[in-house]
Structure formats: structure tokens, C-alpha cells
Write a protein that binds this DNA or RNA. Structure first.
Lengths: 220, 220
DNA sequence: CGGGGCGTTGAATCCCGTCAACGTCCGTGG
DNA sequence: CCACGGACGTTGACGGGATTCAACGCCCCG
């Protein structure tokens, strides 16, 4: 359980001066920057925009009324997010650290000439999302704490580029809320993996994977 | 953990004699019937077909090498399934009970005139899937056994039509593997909910929701 | 120097898993 | 007809892994 005060302050965004046909990013929109813990959208908001991370990291989450929090995904540079089944947001998105994010209006997009190509990209993006979420489901439903941590580190290594040296953008609380654990268990499990020689913690957010095959075997 | 022998026997399908433009089902294909526990597709298969449940129920699942099993979703009459991010199946689908299912080839579909309308239906279907899976994620990551059971019963009641009288098509093992619990915990938790007067078990698979508001409050 | 955010560690507790026994239902076969 | 066996579900006793509660260390900044 995690009944916590950590609230994202609603505050004004910094808006880049001009529209951006983003190079290689396949999404046309305004670039905004968000401060750490700043809300990007909230449950109940109108879902008329989609987003793409340029720099930083984003968490997408839902909260139970007593404060228990579940992060459904972390979005890293290059990741698209914000597509919704209905008209309203069912989840909240917040900046994990200082971020730059492209914001595009859905209504505008469908009017643009490149929309057909864009739609097929969105399609693949959503299907990949679904697959990732199902993997995550397996982790939360059936894996132990060490297996969760191992799969998380491997996944982060792959997505952040440097597969054996992971620079985590998020706090222990974020990791815990993503993995369905508590910060204490995350901390203890990392210590235990280090004692077994599988990882090495340079500092709390910089972790070296010392034995990736063994980590991989931990979660099959 | 659930290391189990329950294996779906690969066996020949019963094939309906003719192609079917299904009335109100918005999917054109062959109707097949599957026996209880029969495999519909397996991890690694080519993902060139999509499916729609006509009668019965289907489970979609992944298995760890030691036999631990996580069911990502149950598919009920009217539900579409089998869309995949890549070319191969990442999960397995099996009949929960005797089923009738429409099977459609994706390659054929994209050639048909109604494909444009169909595509937008698929789009909404996948987005709804994603939302459901994220809900499920919250359940597995942050809810207690009674909260999981309560949300499961409410969900099943809604999807099966009769909101207060739930006729479960699946075994305790299936429920457990869906909810990230064991059969014993499922059984005990149901007994406890009954003792509190929230539900009434006519028989093991027929459950009456005696106090839906209280059940709803259990999972917010 | 003091205080707050963040992370780690220890001790006690608890919820759920494990192991085991038992009951019920049902189809088969004597 | 009943005996038998297997699938399925329930219940009890016990143990363990994760949570809870608490204290402490580190670092940064006012």
C-alpha cells in the first residue's frame, strides 16, 4: 500500500515558440517542456491530444481512492502515448523528470495529408503497447520480487539504448509502483541481486548489469 | 506457483460447411467449434487470423517455463481477439468451455470492400482491450485478494449480461490464473465474501451478487 | 547547523502460498 | 444396483515472502 502526498502541481507549461514538423519523429505538433512531477494530463480530461517523448521520461498511472498507485508504463524518448478508447482520459500522465514532449491535436492530425501513413504507425504503436502491457501483466500476476526487478532492468536497458548500463530516470517509489511492490522490497531486492553478483549499483540510479544471461534466466 | 499438467490436446477442428457473412457480428469468416481446453492458437504460431467468439468463452494466456500461468483475458460472446503486434503469436488461446468461434483471415479481410469500416471497429476494439488490460494491471499490482475477486465478479456480471447473477464459464484454476492468485485463495475469498453477505454461491460456478454497491466499494 | 527528500536496513507482522486431507459430483464398469 | 476413480472444489495447518513500521544514513540546500 502507498498512501502518499506526492502530488503533481498543476502549473503553466513552457511552450515552444513555433509549430514543429519534427525530423524523424513522425509527429507534427508543439514541443512543450514539463518539470519533474508535473501533470501532463489527468483522469477525466478530454483525450483530444497525443504525445511523443523527445527528452526525459513520463509515467502513466492510475490511483485507487486510498492512494495505492499503479504505474502502467514508463514512456521514454521516441515513445508515443495518450491514445484512448473513449473521449476521456482513464489514466494520468506525469513527468518522471524534466521532459520535452511533442503535443499534437488528434482532430488536426486527421485532416493532414500524411495522416494515412501516420495512422498505420499509430496502429503498430498501440499493438506494441498492448503486447508490452500483457507482458507486464504476467510480471505482476506471477513473478517474484527478484524476477520483477530483473525483467525491469533488462527492459530498461534495452529501451534506454545501453543494454548493460542502466541510468534510471525514476525514483524507487516509481519503480515500486510500476512493479507492484513497495520501495523497501525494491531496495532489498536490488541489494540481494548485487550480493549475488548479478548487478552493481554505482549509485542508486545507475546500475550495471554484471550478468545479463543470469538475469534473463531469472525471468525466462 | 502453478506447475500443472492441464494440457490442451491438439485435435482436429469441426468446420462449418460454408462461409458466413455474420449477422450483426461484423466479421466475415468460417465458424468453427472448439471443445473444452482445445487450443485455438499457440505462442509462436503465425498471426494471420483474427477471431470472434459466438458462443462459449476463450482464455488468452502466457506461461513461464516452470508452468506458472497468467491469463491476460477471457473472451466472451461478441468479443474479438487475435490481433497481434508482430507476425507471430505472443500468447496462447484456448477454449474455456465448448465454443463456437468465427475465424477470419487478415489477408482476405484487407481486400474486402467493407474493410475501411471494419478497420475502425478493430481500432476501437484494440483500444478497449488496452484499457481493460491496464485495469487488470491495477488489479494485479495493487489489489488484495478480496478486491480482485470483487472486481472480477462485477466485471463478469456486466459482460455476461445479467449483472447480479453470474454464471461463470471457467474453473477456479482459470480464475486464479487470471487474478494472480491460487485456487485455494480464490475459494477461501469467495467463502469469506459469502460469510459477509456480499455474494451467494448457488453452486460453485453460479454466483449471486447480493450487495453490488458494497462489492463496488471494495475496489473503488 | 538544521531539515527535508531519498534510499537503505532491521524487526515484527500478515496475507497469501504451500501442502495435505476431505467432500462432492459424475461417468464407467463390475 | 453400488463400487471405484478422477476432476473439481473446499477447508485446515503451517510456512514464507512481501509489507509494515521504524530507525538511520546520505546528500543537497536554505
Amino acid at each position: 500500500m502507498s498512501p502518499l502526498p506526492r502530488i503533481a502541481p498543476p502549473q503553466s507549461d513552457h511552450v515552444a515558440p513555433s509549430l514543429h514538423p519534427i525530423d524523424g519523429y513522425e509527429l507534427t505538433g508543439i514541443v512543450r517542456t514539463y518539470d519533474r512531477d508535473q501533470r501532463i494530463f489527468s483522469e477525466g480530461d478530454s483525450a483530444d491530444r497525443i504525445y511523443k517523448v523527445v527528452r526525459g521520461a513520463v509515467r502513466c498511472l492510475r490511483i485507487l481512492s486510498d492512494g495505492r498507485r499503479q504505474i502502467s508504463d514508463f514512456l521514454l524518448p521516441g515513445d508515443l502515448f495518450g491514445l484512448e478508447a473513449g473521449h476521456d482520459r482513464q489514466a494520468t500522465a506525469e513527468a518522471v523528470c524534466d521532459c520535452a514532449i511533442i503535443v499534437a491535436r488528434l482532430s488536426r492530425m486527421s485532416a493532414e495529408p500524411e495522416f494515412a501513413g501516420m495512422a498505420s504507425r499509430l496502429w503498430r504503436c498501440v499493438l506494441r503497447d498492448l503486447q508490452r502491457t500483457r507482458d507486464h501483466l504476467l510480471t505482476l500476476g506471477r513473478r517474484t520480487a527478484s524476477e520483477r526487478i530483473a525483467s525491469f532492468l533488462i527492459d530498461m536497458g534495452q529501451r534506454l539504448g545501453d543494454r548493460d548500463k542502466v541510468e534510471l530516470p525514476m525514483s524507487r517509489q516509481d519503480m515500486a509502483d510500476y512493479l507492484g511492490l513497495t520501495i523497501e522490497t525494491v531496495s532489498r531486492t536490488l541489494a540481494q541481486l548485487e550480493a549475488r553478483g548479478l548487478i552493481e549499483a554505482r549509485c542508486s540510479r545507475s546500475i550495471v548489469l554484471r550478468n545479463t544471461p543470469a538475469l534473463r534466466r531469472l525471468c525466462e
